[in-house]
Simulated scan of single mutants.
Amino acid sequence: MATIAVIGANGTIGRRVVSEALSRGHQVTAVVRNPAGYTPPSPDVTVVAGDVLDPEDVARVAAGQDVLVSAVGGGGGNGEGHAALIEPAARALVEGLRTLGGAAPRLIAVGGAGSLETAPGVRVWDAPGLPDWLLRTMHAHGDAQEYYNTVADVRWTVLSPAATIEPGERTGGYRTGTEQLVTDAEGASYITTEDYAAALVDEIETPRFTGRRFTVAR
């Protein structure tokens, strides 16, 4: 059993990560900005307040945990408001964990698909016709990824989703990649939030991508 704190536990992805981790017997702390407005899926979940943009808050909620999951900035609605916090959140997460030194938990952050390659030198965000709000979110995740790539003193992993991620069935099946978008035989790239959460908790239980980014799709 691992102790896992999930920042952004009230979001679309965060809720699935909390439920998936609970279903496997892990001890979960849900970190949200407003605990009064959050109903955990089980009384076994500890709920605390925390601000992902405050390194002191990050250090406080991370202390004593095995893993810190950041599900902040995963999107929602039309993405407005998310892009501006993605890269600053990455910096605050690392800064906060650094203050814990060797006692810092491993960090697993929800990433974006925009910077994944679809062909040599071509990325998802290069596709024509993408709306401005989506491009802003994609590039913000790309900036955060560039920052994480410079970090060597904190154990981190970024999990990028498929090109399309939405609530659906949990199958527990998925394929992994690293810097290239994972697609099926028809060229589609898809994952449910439930299978994404399963992949994230799988990485908690059996680390394979420490210090790097990986991606999943069905």
Rank of each mutant, 00 (worst) to 15 (best):
G187M: 06
T164R: 12
A163Q: 11
P161C: 09
G173D: 13
R175S: 13
T157L: 09
D195G: 00
T183V: 15
S160A: 15
E194A: 12
A188K: 13
T193D: 03
Y190Q: 10
Y196W: 12
T192H: 01
E166F: 14
G173I: 06
V182C: 05
G172T: 12
L181Q: 07
S160F: 05
T183I: 08
D184W: 04
Y190R: 15
G187D: 07
T176L: 10
E179S: 15
E194D: 13
E169G: 00
D195L: 01
A163H: 07
E186Q: 14
E194Y: 01
S189H: 08
G172Y: 13
S160H: 11
E179K: 12
T183A: 09
G168N: 03
S160P: 04
G187H: 04
D184C: 11
V182D: 00
Y196F: 14
E194L: 02
T192R: 00
E194Q: 14
A185L: 06
D184G: 12
L159I: 15
T171C: 07
E169F: 01
G187S: 08
D195E: 03
A185T: 11
G177P: 01
G173N: 12
R175W: 03
S189Q: 09
A185R: 06
P161F: 03
T157Q: 00
E179V: 15
T157S: 04
P167Y: 05
Y196L: 10
P167F: 08
A197M: 09
S189L: 04
G187A: 06
A197D: 02
G177A: 06
G187K: 04
R175Q: 11
S189P: 02
Y190I: 01
R170D: 03
